[in-house]
Design a protein around this nucleic acid. Sequence first.
DNA 1: CCCACCTGAGACACCGATGTCTCAGGTGGG
DNA 2: CCCACCTGAGACATCGGTGTCTCAGGTGGG
Lengths: 189, 189
Amino acid sequence: MAVDRDHVLRSAAALLTRKASATLDEVAKAAGISRATLHRQFAGRDALVRALEEYGIQECEAALRTARLGEGPASDALRRLVAEIEPHAGLLAFLYTENQLFEGEELNDGWTRMDEQLGALFRRGQENGEFRIDLTPAWLTEASYGLLVSASWAVTDGRMAPNDFTRMITELLLGGVRRPHGEPGRTPS
Amino acid sequence: MAVDRDHVLRSAAALLTRKASATLDEVAKAAGISRATLHRQFAGRDALVRALEEYGIQECEAALRTARLGEGPASDALRRLVAEIEPHAGLLAFLYTENQLFEGEELNDGWTRMDEQLGALFRRGQENGEFRIDLTPAWLTEASYGLLVSASWAVTDGRMAPNDFTRMITELLLGGVRRPHGEPGRTPS
DNA sequence: CCCACCTGAGACACCGATGTCTCAGGTGGG
DNA sequence: CCCACCTGAGACATCGGTGTCTCAGGTGGG
């Protein structure tokens, strides 16, 4: 029986998040097991990545459920979502860029499900007048991923304070960089 | 002398943008030359990627110059910038993710220069009251890259219309997804 | 106690990609 | 015309990562 398949997955995620090109040797060492044992649990690198994908999807879907995207103002739902996903943003970034390599292969349904839920949130916001209607839900979904990835890398590279993660993403996503009309601007010079 | 070093670089960029794991054989074929000749121009894959990096940086810096980030409203400058960078967004995406693999190695000064120019633009916008001051220029710079990458992939994967590229990015970046207060919202159902 | 089972360590072969070399062809300039 | 030069094609060795196997050790349950 798996020594601790979950432990292996977690440490592999932590390592590959930092170094996507890590060797199976390094993954095994990171998990505190030998390459042989690692190979007994995951048939190969491909299987490991697939398992990580499944793992990441489940974590994200759990975050989606916890965030209850259907309840309350869409803006608040989005804030809850980003806050919930934050712990898994690194893994998400890894999988997001890794997916670019699944050139021909079919991709996990999980992504489609996530896309749909995110898209539905943005559509809901548009339909109840909270959100602009000139930005397509598909793009907003894509942009959310992009910002999550950027912020994740910025944090791991020390270009952003971990505490700012959720606020920077949601504030930019919701309000953009331009100052609202009403507020007084500081005059230049 | 190089058959057409520039042609090789361009076709390599076009190919690697679509398939980052392309073989040197494929790169050579894409350029219409043999692997031997390719190898005569670029010592190895590493050298090729470095050259692509230099090439991409030069294209982006040219875009930065053309956009004249220092002139006029910062919002308009940002719009000009995105429009100018659009043709090179694919290459930028490739290099952006590839840079994540330059784990230990020193990275090209060009990126720092670009970061500084972008950061200066956002800082200028903040100082003259156009932009909010609660989002750091460093994050806004990072987020710009992220959105460019996301949009680039969305276009190549057919999830976004090429025509929407500049508008989707700039509108989201500038105004965010939330509807401005003044405008009337359509009542739900 | 003893056996079944799992693990770690290492050896080994395999594979794809890469780096290097040679040689024939063909093209352009003198 | 002829030679210098470049190119394409292919052979070949290499290398890092991977997949597979064996075997000794050690641990826990019966």
